[in-house]
Amino acid sequence: MTIEQAVALAPASRAIDLIGGDLTEKSLRLHLEGLPGVDAVGLEARAAGLGTRSIKTTSKAWALDTIIRLIDLTTLEGADTPGKVQSLVAKAMTPDPSDLTTPRVAAVCVYGDMVPYAVKALGPNSGVNVAAVATAFPSGRASLPVKLADTRDAVAAGADEIDMVIDRGAFLSGRYGMVFDQIVAVKEACRRDDGTYAHLKVILETGELNTYDNVRRASWLAILAGGDFIKTSTGKVAPAATLPVTLLMLQVVRDWHRLTGERIGVKPAGGIRSSKDAIKYLVTVAETVGEEWLDPRLFRFGASSLLNDVLLQRQKMTTGRYSGPDYVTID
């Protein structure tokens, strides 16, 4: 296990520290509604500006390897099988059989019932984590006991990380306390017998939250409730990750750090397919929260096809000529 686990803390302690012991639906609402607004035009202009950085030579080489190290290599299909997961794990461990200097990805991300196969295929000391989506992913439309059982099941099967979804319906109807309580409960369900916690990524499904103000509130809410990471999307709803949304979530994380000294991770997921796009995210991370966030403990890409594009670019940098899809493996 190379990735540090979250320090055990009483799940709601962040919120209590910040808002006060008499944490109520009302005090939570007042807190979230007091966050500064987001001007969409300015946010998108800033993201576009960051997207024009020109990353060359040594900077690009470092960026490509860093992207690989930050990938949660993902398969989330109804058609997933143990064989498919085993194949994914092989790719995660040896992304480019023609160049063994290629780093491994951060994690493989699978459905809960696939966790045992992933754990088994990875074996001990792979350096690659197993992340499981849980809580009735992707819609989250199930009762809390079902969500918790889903989570516990994955943790018990050996998942290092849990990617939960928030109840967007509850959030959009203003029931912030309910969303908060569910995250707290899921966090509690991430607790292992030895007192450690599986890493909790909270998926906001920003495509359904619709406004940037909502994204900021939901991000803040997820952190208050004990999330270790805030994640944009399930990948099942369009738009999935966008650069402006990720920038905004990074700004929240930066503000949280400014306020508490605590570092929260960010994971854009879905829709990032090219190295060129991924580099824009790296630039955005580095220029918003700082380079120290370019670390699998604090930043991930939820992606599947991105890896192969990075490998093609990497081969180009090594050989000096353009490569082709037949020179990288399908999974």
């Binding site: 950085r53 990353i55 040594t58 080489a61 490509l64 790296l282 380079e291 990497r314």
Partner: peptide, 17 residues
């Protein structure tokens, strides 16, 4: 394929004239 000087920040970016 690693950064040459460890004390340089990636943020400084290689020249792109």
């Amino acid at each position: 394929m690693t950064m040459e000087a460890s004390n340089t920040r990636w943020l400084d970016y290689a020249p792109a004239p």
